[in-house]
Each structure stands twice: as C-alpha cells, then as structure tokens.
Simulated assay, not measured.
Amino acid sequence: MTTCTKCEATWGGMHTCHCSGCHHTFSSLSAFDLHRRGDQCRTPSDAGLVLADRAYPCFTRPTDHEHPHWTTDGQGVLA
C-alpha cells in the first residue's frame, strides 16, 4: 500500500493514481485525467466518476450502461 504524506490516504494497485491537488484517488490514469480540466480539479461526480469497489475510497469510470456519462456506439465501445 502507498500512503500520501499530506492527507494520509492509502491505496494499492499498479495503475491507481492519487491527485496531489484534491487528494482523491483514481483507479486509472484515464479516470484521473477525466477529473482534470486544464489545471483544475473537478469533483469525481462532475467528471462522471463513481466509487470503485475497493477497500479504500477510489473513483473509476462507471460500468452501468444506464449511467448518463456512459455512452456507447451500440457495440459496447465508448463513443
């Protein structure tokens, strides 16, 4: 497990990202990138992210096709 020395959040995983600005943790670089707008952090909910099923707070892209931020091309590929 890795720990942030400023907020004391802990996380694990090879692709997990922790933002040094807002101190939220993300399941992947793509989820982290979604929460950034220029040099500003957006809230995970504003970025369309949801909590992942992990032992620590971690935001990820939703997997529910009914979620408003999840759109596909009809083939299950993100549009």
Results as ranks from 00 to 15, higher is better:
11 W>Q: 08
6 K>V: 15
15 H>M: 15
7 C>K: 07
70 W>A: 11
32 F>N: 00
57 P>F: 09
56 Y>H: 01
20 S>P: 11
51 L>Y: 10
21 G>V: 11
44 P>A: 00
12 G>H: 13
9 A>C: 14
1 M>C: 14
64 D>V: 13
40 Q>Y: 04
78 L>T: 09
47 A>M: 02
40 Q>E: 06
42 R>F: 00
28 S>D: 10
55 A>N: 07
22 C>S: 04
33 D>E: 13
3 T>W: 09
57 P>W: 11
39 D>P: 02
11 W>T: 05
54 R>I: 00
70 W>K: 12
64 D>Q: 12
78 L>V: 10
73 D>G: 12
32 F>G: 01
21 G>M: 08
49 L>H: 07
55 A>E: 11
41 C>R: 00
8 E>W: 06
20 S>M: 11
76 G>Y: 00
52 A>C: 04
75 Q>G: 09
36 R>Q: 04
19 C>N: 05
56 Y>L: 03
38 G>Y: 01
43 T>V: 06
73 D>Q: 12
39 D>K: 02
27 S>G: 04
78 L>I: 11
64 D>S: 14
38 G>S: 04
17 C>Y: 12
12 G>Y: 13
56 Y>W: 03
1 M>D: 12
51 L>E: 13
66 E>I: 07
40 Q>C: 05
58 C>E: 00
63 T>F: 08
74 G>E: 05
2 T>Q: 15
28 S>P: 09
59 F>D: 00
62 P>S: 15
68 P>M: 06
2 T>N: 15
37 R>N: 02
43 T>C: 06
1 M>T: 08
69 H>Y: 08
9 A>M: 14
68 P>G: 07
9 A>F: 13
36 R>K: 05
62 P>V: 06
6 K>L: 14
